[in-house]
């Protein structure tokens, strides 16, 4: 409602400070500045430096020169690089799909009325709270070829006669690191989806029950579509975390055996720091950008408000 009040403005002299203080454009820039500076210093500069390094022949201790796409051309012919791309894709796809399925299942269970609900929810969060390095070390012990509890148990049950070298055989090692990643990633997916589930009004399920929907039909026609915006956010983050994973691999296998578990992130680090080839490491890291952009674009379209979310009042 606008009420026009016609008062005679007293021609008081407004100070310079007051005038600036009234200037919305100036103020909005002023308030954005700290955040913009932080982004510039801690995100834009490192990213730009990375891109630049990828086009030089910099080594540790020696400033490099611009070499154009030489690093990328050599990577293109590098079998280990392509293996790491394959590993990263496998790792990301399998771990994300399983994390989604198990996370959703757990969220659905936790959304029901079960005894000790708060306690169980707290337990579910545990893998998320423990520092990654610590949980990786725990998994290292579990998978250990001499002291591993899985091998010990299986042997006691009489199912195997020799300890399994989980991290010593390429495909077993791949499976092992993926399982560790899943274990660590489920809480994030489960708790976020649980939050989403709780925003779905109970009356919709009652209406669907009366409309004759079986539990599966209710899940298919009510839960899943109403959860889809949250699923898009959660899975984008989950994919980004998984794709750029480093800690788990670095503690468990360091990329071995036979580079079978080398991800692009670990390979980049290995070439750049222990290997001293800063430029090559940067080029590998830069090669992750198209994949990450694709994931972000996917989320951009996935996150767009559905038509049913638009317009009107509540």
């Amino acid at each position: 409602m606008s009420v026009s009040v016609s008062t005679v403005r007293t021609p008081a002299r407004t100070s310079r400070f007051e005038r600036i203080n009234d200037n919305r454009a100036f103020l909005s820039w002023l308030f954005m500045l700290p955040a913009a500076l932080l982004l510039l210093v801690f995100l834009t500069y490192p990213l730009g430096l990375g891109v630049w390094l990828g086009m030089t022949d910099t080594k540790i201790g020696r400033a490099g020169e611009f070499v154009g796409f030489e690093n990328y051309i050599s990577l293109f012919r590098d079998g280990v690089f392509w293996l790491s791309v394959f590993n990263t894709m496998l790792y990301t796809v399998v771990a994300s799909v399983v994390k989604f399925a198990l996370g959703l299942w757990l969220a659905l269970l936790l959304n029901k009325h079960i005894p000790f609900k708060a306690f169980i929810r707290a337990i579910v969060l545990l893998p998320f709270i423990v520092p990654t390095v610590l949980s990786a070390i725990a998994f290292w012990w579990i998978y250990d070829s001499q002291f591993g509890i899985i091998s010990w148990t299986l042997q006691r049950m009489g199912l195997i006669d020799r300890y399994i070298d989980f991290l010593g055989e390429p495909n077993l090692a791949r499976a092992s690191v993926i399982i560790a990643n899943i274990w660590r990633g489920i809480p994030f997916v489960a708790i976020s989806l649980l939050a989403g589930l709780q925003t779905i009004p109970q009356s919709l399920y009652e209406a669907a029950t009366i409309d004759g929907g079986s539990p599966w039909q209710q899940f298919r026609h009510i839960t899943l579509p109403l959860l889809s915006p949250i699923i898009a956010v959660v899975m984008t983050f989950s994919v980004l975390f998984t794709f750029t994973d480093f800690q788990l691999i670095y503690v468990l296998t360091r990329g071995g055996p036979l580079n079978a578990t080398h991800l692009m992130a670990t390979l980049s680090f290995q070439r750049a720091i222990p290997g001293g080839q800063l430029a090559e490491g940067a080029a590998i890291a830069n090669a992750m950008i198209p994949f990450l952009l694709a994931a972000i674009l996917f989320s951009y379209f996935g996150l767009q408000r559905r038509r049913w979310q638009q317009g009107g009042r509540d």
């Binding site: 009004p201 009356s203 009652e206 209406a207 009366i210 026609h221 009510i222 579509p225 109403l226 049913w308």
Partner: peptide
């Protein structure tokens, strides 16, 4: 074989 009208309507928002 009953139908119910809810206080908050309980319309499916995505349909």
């Amino acid at each position: 074989d009953i139908a119910m009208v809810f206080q908050n309507y309980a319309l499916y928002p995505h349909m």
